[in-house]
């Protein structure tokens, strides 16, 4: 978001750069944790007749990951659009 501050902005400190990298990691970890709990609930039923994932469960997990990324992106786009139209348009 450096465009918000212009070129006169001082260099970020070490602490700021580390915090930014950490936040990047946390965003990805958060995404993974949510996806993981959601997809395992959607695709792996609570009976455990066998220790292995069967074909149906495996394919369901693969598709669930793809869909979760898709949803994450679509929701992000929609939230940004809504925020932009609120700021720019002045309603109605």
């Amino acid at each position: 978001m450096s465009f918000l501050f212009g070129s006169g902005r001082p260099q970020p400190t070490s602490a700021e750069k580390i915090a930014a990298a950490e936040q990047e990691y946390e965003m990805i970890a958060e995404l993974y944790n949510r996806l993981s709990s959601t997809c395992s609930k959607k695709c792996v039923p609570a009976e455990y007749r066998e220790p292995d994932l069967n074909k149906g469960e495996s394919v369901c997990l693969d598709r669930c990951v793809a869909k979760f990324f898709d949803v994450q992106i679509k929701v992000g786009e929609k939230i940004q659009q809504d925020a932009a139209s609120k700021m720019g348009g002045g309603g109605f």
Binding site: T38, K42, C43, V59, C60, D62, R63, C64, A66, K67, F68, D70, V71, K74
Partner: peptide
């Protein structure tokens, strides 16, 4: 996602 997505017969929405 939980409320709207339940079809895993394909990888597209």
């Amino acid at each position: 996602f939980e409320d709207c997505i339940s079809d895993f017969s394909s990888k597209s929405l």
